[in-house]
Design a protein around this nucleic acid. Structure first.
Length: 570
DNA sequence: GCCGTTTTCGGCCCGACTGTTTTCAGTCG
């Protein structure tokens, strides 16, 4: 699958065009890159169908370059640009305060090509002698270089939630803070969070901002104004705070929730209606008369769009659906009745079956599927058939003591040829077979897709576990042809696992949405290895909502009786 | 370079903060 490679090249082209001060073209390339990046279908397949030009943001010229890459493995235009741009734009761009203009300037004047060149130029005080730059810029660059070097990707939603809630409480406690909301990707419940956007209503902005930049976990102040301030915390997280007036709260919340592309679309829509939208409100274009802004609902309503939950605001068709009144009725938080994947001390988990069951019961779950490992991956301490037999007895014993239905399942390895690492007899005996790929993960797309499809054709497989195998910030998805895969999932009536372990979040919301369009159904699991992780189920609900899922799409929403019936059919 | 219920040509989202500029450019989100 060449989608990500092509997207990366288009992003790079955009960056190089920006360096040359060329207007508008970079935005076109960025838009095309984002389209390709978020495709679930293989771009080659789309090309074979002759449908590349139907993709949003892709016209004749960019389509030609995509085809060139598919057929020859390179894009000449990219190499020509690259020849003219010998500096490491990607690395240099990570330094706060360095954008395309300054990167170009530093190259022209000081021949800065790499972070090392930049550091030397700053240390030798050459930067402050360049016209339009000064000693403050030089200092900020010097400070920023180490930041650029240690940047480690985005924070994981599941791990960031407690930190953010602590920050919220600290700020909320300040007497001048009237209202507070965390916006940005945090509010959209994105799998990974780049920075924290905090929105505050206060009649004394200066006091709030002074308090904010002086909090004791602040490592560095990036900006300190009355309406906008930014800091870096000791844990490396960037926090932006904006203070607005009461009647601007809705428009500010809308704006700072984003995402960026969603906002751009919304603003274009406003312009078409003779209005202009900003964080301060919706105004008439002509005489800047205030139209809406107190609440988000008012703004969307005036624009003729049904308001959608923050999780959907990714410019993935939600604005169109809002216009046509066809938004899905997303499943609610807290509506999962059970959990389809937990591990116990029988394999690589930390707690007993009884401890897991009791903890799940306490959280209000109605059912729990015990899925210890079965297969060949030594580190997971897999069960053999004899152990499964013993475990079955233990589950019966615990079942009598708790008021939650415990299903006996297993997470079974899918072998290289698509067979399961478990005999037919036990495949039938188990209530739930969750089949996952754990070994030989580097196969090419054709082989991996075939392997998984073979497993799906086994009518004892109920759920495909963590379907792409990704680990956030660490490992990409297996090579897969998602179109073929989703088609097979639909035909075999298997469920796709939404594994909401904070480090997996697999499927991604983009793939969930695509799979739903193929007619697939889903099962959410925490993949817990200890009782404390059971509470992560809401992360799976967040993923499902971001993928536009409704109650009927997700097996966790069904009653214990219905789940028994559905599982029994397989 | 893309796109079209004001357009196939002429637009392309909007505003705050910073530094070095005495009126604004660059960066960021």
């Amino acid at each position: 699958m060449k989608n990500q490679e092509i997207a990366k090249l288009l992003f790079d082209i955009a960056e190089m065009l920006e360096l040359q001060n060329i207007p508008f073209k970079p935005r076109a390339y960025q838009r095309a890159a984002r389209t390709i990046e978020s495709l679930s279908e293989n771009i080659e397949d789309i090309w074979k169908r002759g449908a590349i030009l139907e993709l949003p943001g892709i016209g004749e010229s960019i389509a030609e370059k995509i085809v060139e890459y598919i057929t020859t493995g390179k894009i000449k235009y990219y190499f020509d640009l690259k020849k003219k741009m010998p500096m490491d734009v990607e690395q240099l761009g990570k330094v706060p305060g360095l954008g395309p203009k300054r990167i170009k300037l530093l190259y022209d004047k000081l021949n800065v090509k790499t972070l090392a060149d930049l550091k030397k130029a700053a240390q030798d005080h050459k930067i402050q002698r360049v016209a339009s730059l000064g000693h403050k810029v030089e200092e900020s660059i010097l400070n920023g270089i180490s930041f650029a070097q240690q940047q480690k990707g985005r924070a994981l939603l599941g791990y960031v939630i407690p930190q953010v809630e602590e920050l919220r409480q600290k700020l909320q406690a300040h007497p001048s803070v009237k209202k507070i909301e965390i916006a940005g990707s945090y509010r959209r419940k994105k799998e990974t969070i780049g920075d924290i956007d905090v929105l505050i209503v206060s009649s004394q902005p200066q006091k709030v901002m002074d308090f904010f930049v002086q909090m004791n976990d602040v490592a560095r102040v990036l900006a300190h104004g009355t309406s906008k301030s930014s800091v870096l915390l000791n844990n490396g997280m960037q926090v932006d705070v904006r203070v607005v007036k009461e009647n601007e709260f809705g428009s500010a919340l809308q704006y700072f929730t984003g995402n960026k592309e969603h906002n751009v679309e919304l603003r274009k829509l406003a312009l078409k209606k003779g209005l202009t939208l900003s964080e301060y409100g919706l105004f008439t274009l002509k005489d800047k008369k205030w139209v809406a802004g107190k609440t988000e609902e008012d703004i969307y309503k005036k624009l003729g769009v049904d308001i959608m939950p923050p999780e959907m605001r990714e410019n993935m068709g939600e604005i169109d659906a809002g216009k046509r009144h066809t938004l899905p009725n997303l499943l609610d938080y807290g509506s999962c009745l059970g959990d389809f994947q937990v591990h116990t001390e029988w394999s690589d988990g930390q707690d007993t079956i009884e401890a897991m069951a009791r903890a799940a019961e306490k959280l209000g779950r109605k059912f729990l599927v015990i899925t210890d490992h079965v297969g060949q991956v030594g580190i997971t301490n897999p069960l053999n058939e004899k152990k499964l037999e013993q475990q079955s007895k233990e589950i019966s014993r615990v079942q009598k003591k708790v008021d939650i239905r415990i299903f006996h399942g297993a997470e079974v390895d899918i072998l290289k040829d698509g067979r399961l690492a478990l005999g037919k007899l036990w495949q039938k005996k188990l209530d739930v077979v969750l089949a996952s790929v754990h070994l030989a993960t580097k196969m090419d797309s054709v082989a991996m897709t075939k392997r998984i499809c073979v497993a799906l054709e086994n009518n004892r497989v109920h759920i495909l576990g963590h379907p792409t195998g990704r680990l956030l910030n660490r490992r990409d998805s297996y090579a897969l042809d998602f179109g073929t895969l989703f088609d097979k999932v639909k035909k075999t009536e298997t469920r796709l696992d939404i594994d909401c372990h904070p480090e997996r979040m697999d499927l991604s919301s983009v793939h969930i949405k695509a799979a739903k369009e193929f007619g697939c159904r889903f099962a959410i699991s925490t993949d817990s290895h200890s009782a404390s992780e059971l509470r992560n189920l809401h992360l799976g609900e967040a993923l499902a909502r971001r993928g536009w899922l409704e109650k009927k799409d997700v097996l966790n929403m069904y009653s214990v009786k219905e789940v028994e019936t559905i599982l029994g059919k397989k």
